[in-house]
Simulated scan of single mutants.
Amino acid sequence: MRKLKLQVQITIDGYIAGLNGEMDWMTFPWTDDIGEYVKSITAPVDTILLGRKLAQGFIPHWAGVAADASNPEVEAGKKFTNTPKVVFTKTLKAVEWPNTELAGRDLVEEVNALKSMEGEDLIAYGGGEFVSNLISESLIDEYHLFVNPAALGTGMKIFEQRTQLKHVKTQSFDCGIVVLVYEKA
């Protein structure tokens, strides 16, 4: 069975965005060591899962990066653009992006169907609601929580209920971010 990974930026107090979706607290630019880490966890991925709201910015952004040979992130742009994507939505009826399909059925059924298919790992990038639903349905196998050196005090969170996890490793990066890696308990 394929593994579903979650890669998410998070504050030290557990938020993925401000109350109005603000993400200006994220640490950028990244240093080479964190870039290499992200390459290592995305290399064995052959499908990206996205919530609709994030997809509307994520897909066009990375397509633009992939098309700009002078961009230092061009390789990441190519990886994210060329990797098949599944966008989870109840509102979109057609997909406007290449290499992308829509999933509108039951989340658990859709994700379990993807996990049971032949292939490599899956990775989820979310918005709060999409990722919260993946977590509450216990669909994520491996968590990569990129903890930024910032606290918001209030905002959007992804853990809406008690969730027991097993610590796998912790790694710090030169830019100040620490990644906490967990698996299902």
Score class of each variant (00 low, 15 high):
L4V: 11
L6M: 14
L6N: 07
L6H: 07
Q9E: 14
I12A: 14
A17P: 02
A17W: 00
G18S: 10
L19T: 15
L19S: 12
N20G: 14
M23T: 14
M23K: 12
M23E: 15
M23N: 04
D24E: 12
M26E: 12
M26G: 04
M26Q: 13
T27M: 11
F28N: 09
F28T: 12
F28K: 08
F28G: 10
D32M: 06
I34R: 03
I34D: 02
G35H: 04
G35V: 08
V38S: 11
K39P: 07
P44R: 03
L49Q: 01
G51F: 02
R52M: 06
K53Q: 13
A55K: 04
Q56Y: 02
I59A: 01
I59P: 00
P60I: 07
A63S: 14
G64I: 08
A66W: 07
A66V: 08
D68E: 08
A69L: 10
E73Y: 10
G77Q: 03
G77R: 03
K78R: 15
K78G: 10
K79D: 09
F80G: 02
F80C: 10
F80I: 03
P84V: 02
V87W: 01
F88N: 00
T89F: 06
T91D: 11
T91A: 08
K93C: 11
K93I: 09
K93E: 14
A94S: 14
E96Y: 07
P98T: 12
N99I: 05
T100M: 09
E101M: 12
E101T: 13
L102E: 06
G104K: 02
R105S: 15
D106C: 14
L107A: 04
E109D: 13
V111M: 05
L114W: 05
L114H: 03
K115A: 04
K115W: 06
M117V: 05
M117R: 15
G119P: 13
G119K: 03
E120P: 00
E120V: 00
A124Q: 03
Y125S: 05
Y125G: 01
Y125Q: 02
G128D: 06
G128K: 03
E129L: 06
F130H: 00
S132P: 07
S132H: 01
I135A: 07
I135Y: 00
I135Q: 01
E137T: 10
I140V: 14
Y143H: 04
H144M: 10
F146E: 12
P149Q: 09
P149N: 00
A150R: 07
A151Y: 04
L152I: 09
L152H: 01
L152M: 08
G153M: 05
F159S: 11
Q161P: 06
V168E: 15
T170R: 07
Q171A: 12
S172C: 13
I177Q: 00
V179K: 06
L180F: 10
Y182T: 03
Y182M: 12
Y182W: 06
K184W: 01
